[in-house]
Amino acid sequence: MKRVLFLLLLLAAPAFFSIAPIPARAAPAPGTFSDPAMEARARNLQRQLRCLVCQGESIDESHAPLAEELRQLVRQQMVEGRSDRQIQEFLTARYGNYILMRPPVEADTYFLWAAPFLVLIVAGGVAIFVISKARKAAPSDPL
């Protein structure tokens, strides 16, 4: 009799659990690191890399299968202990500069990086010239 009771209890156990469930925590999406520092590093790296088949999206924010592959590649290399720089160099060797969201500073891009500041300097120079001309035209009594 006791045995039967025990068996019945055993059978009923799942029912008890389902009556008073302890809500399960959501699992992190597959592929994410459990170490928050590692995860943050991965996300930062992903943001620096362009999804090659999308329009202007980084691999961090793209649904494209290629972006998923690249995310896995980045994370795998991180697990293998490579530095951010090494990972970027590896990907650049494979896909070219196009994959870098931040264009490298080299002969082809000197103008790109310098242009805004050149314009700033030239415009600033013109402004100084205009102001000095306007001052000469102004009556020169001190304030």
Partner: peptide, 27 residues
């Protein structure tokens, strides 16, 4: 000028057959 060069430079560079680059938010 920053937005102008950032937008047009990769197109010009590519059209010249030099290099394909991306100018993303970090720039």
């Amino acid at each position: 000028a920053s937005v102008f060069v950032g937008t047009l430079y990769p197109m010009v560079l590519d059209a010249m057959g030099r290099d394909k680059i991306s100018v993303g938010p970090p720039y």
